[in-house]
């Protein structure tokens, strides 16, 4: 059993990135893959999970900067600054992610944009814009909720506009936005599962994400009761870790407040 699992780790731990055994377990090609067993299922789905985590981490971390700019632009008084941000945010928030994936792929394909036609890069770009717009709305709300008294105090201290933003507005804004931002992070992470399920982007060499492999096993064995619970457990575990991480940041953001930790 242990030996089997070590072999499975060897063969499939990085299979989702195309490293390792080429044929999936239970495949019926000429070389003959390894059999479908619990080790292979767990390792392969875990390997796909790495992809989900990577998608989430990349788009969330890069999307934050666009979100911040969009959120602040939307809060501006000048219409020619706020309107474009408003329209972009509304469009991405008002349309389903699956359709955004399709449109993204078709645009990349018509531009002939090499790597962006693959799921790994193209889907990341779509996810980047998607999460940026959702987070922008959260940050915009938080920006508007910054107490005016705080800003008055900052002005009374003769802080310059930039310092005022850096030392007063931004920290307060982040503190207010953080619970909602945690939610957004969770939902984004869950949304990464539809990339490989037929969202337009072609799957190359069967390197997919966790749900792609779970579906593969469920179809192969006609048994949804093993693969899907495993992928669900993986997601519960990673979501729990994500929530813990976000909460530790929240503690830092709220450290000056006595009651709201």
């Amino acid at each position: 059993m242990i030996n089997e699992c070590l072999t499975a780790l060897d063969n499939y731990a990085l299979r989702s990135f195309g490293i390792g055994e080429r044929s999936l377990p239970g495949s019926t090609n000429t070389r003959g893959g390894s059999p479908i067993n619990m080790c292979n299922i767990t390792v392969l789905i875990g390997s796909g999970m790495l992809r989900n985590i990577l998608f989430g981490a990349v788009s969330l971390s890069t999307g934050f900067f666009l979100a911040l700019s969009l959120g602040l632009l939307k809060a501006r008084d000048e219409w020619f600054l706020s309107t474009p941000a408003r329209v972009l945010i509304y469009t991405f928030r008002g349309t389903p992610l699956l359709i955004q994936f399709f449109i993204g792929y078709l645009i990349f394909a018509s531009l002939g944009a090499g790597v962006f036609r693959t799921a790994a890069y193209g889907a990341s770009v779509v996810l980047f814009f998607n999460t940026a717009c959702y987070s922008a709305e959260i940050l915009y709300g938080a920006y508007r909720a910054v107490p005016n008294t705080d800003l008055e105090a900052a002005r009374a201290f003769a802080l310059r506009p930039f310092d005022r933003f850096r030392d007063v507005t931004f920290p307060t804004m982040m503190r207010l936005a953080w619970p909602a931002y945690t939610n957004e992070a969770i939902f984004l992470f869950h949304a990464t599962t539809i990339v490989f399920l037929g969202a337009g982007f072609p799957v190359r060499r069967q390197s997919g994400d966790a749900l792609y492999y779970a579906q593969y096993f469920a179809e192969r064995t006609f048994n949804p009761f093993i693969a899907y619970p495993i992928v669900a457990l993986y997601f519960v575990a990673v979501t729990a870790v994500l929530i813990l991480m976000m909460r530790s940041v929240q503690v830092v953001l709220n450290r000056h407040l006595r009651n709201e930790r």
């Binding site: 869950h190 949304a191 599962t193 779970a214 469920a218 899907y228 669900a232 997601f235």
Partner: peptide, 10 residues
């Protein structure tokens, strides 16, 4: 909150 909805749909 812990499990993506698409998994349930499948």
């Amino acid at each position: 909150r812990g499990i993506p909805d698409i998994i349930f749909f499948l």
